[in-house]
Design a protein around this nucleic acid. Structure first.
Lengths: 107, 107
DNA sequence: TCGAGCTGTGAAAATCCTGTTAACGCAGGG
DNA sequence: CCCTGCGTTAACAGGATTTTCACAGCTCGA
């Protein structure tokens, strides 16, 4: 069984409410697309854990990525851009070369 | 329990008095139709919360929308037009693609 | 009976999202 | 240096979604 998250995920000034399709910074919702939000939820559901592209893709897209698929990278980039606007001082998503990405609630 | 709103809803220069079927900007009443007002009241009663079309429809029309119903969209558009005339510098109603709409008191 | 305004619906126009590719930068090894 | 591998992001086309317009039916006073 996968770790079941309580409805709201919290990470400093960032709060994520999957049920409400919302990611809030200081109470203000970010304008995330479905994919971006799904990706953020997946990452934030496993704080400090390095997640592979395959894991992330499976969770967000519901299937196996094809060889050399860069969708995860592209959406991480888009997500970072929007998170960076709202929280310029924090880098919540970390790259792990050759493996995947990791969400760190405290930057 | 649902959030119970005090009679007058306030959002900057906009004030809404559901009891009096009135929405005022700087004290001047907007010419809103019933549906437009109901929609505005519903949205403004849940500031910063992303509301789905289903929620909005249920609240305003009192039933479930039929598949592919665009009534909510059309009335949001009509509402925006009238709000935009009175408050050209603010965008109070935000679209959340694939989900619904959100009322932000401060634009 | 007429006219004005409100409503819901369909559909065209405008806008946004998605997946994909490719250009670019950077670091390490040869 | 040059090459290679990897991550980042700009750009694009196609598809999906939203916005807006037009219209016909209704209601309600004049």
């Amino acid at each position: 069984m996968e770790t079941q998250q309580p409805t709201p995920l919290s990470a400093g000034r960032l709060e994520i409410r999957p049920q409400e399709h919302a990611a809030l910074v200081d109470g203000r919702p970010l304008s995330l697309t479905m994919r971006e939000l799904q990706l953020l939820v997946t990452l934030a559901s496993h704080p400090q854990r390095i997640m592979t592209r395959e894991e992330l893709f499976a969770s967000v897209w519901g299937s196996q990525p094809r060889r050399d698929d860069r969708s995860v990278d592209v959406y991480v980039s888009r997500l970072r851009a929007k998170l960076g606007e709202a929280l310029p001082e924090l880098r919540l998503i970390h790259t792990h070369n050759g493996i995947g990405y990791r969400f760190s609630p405290d930057g």
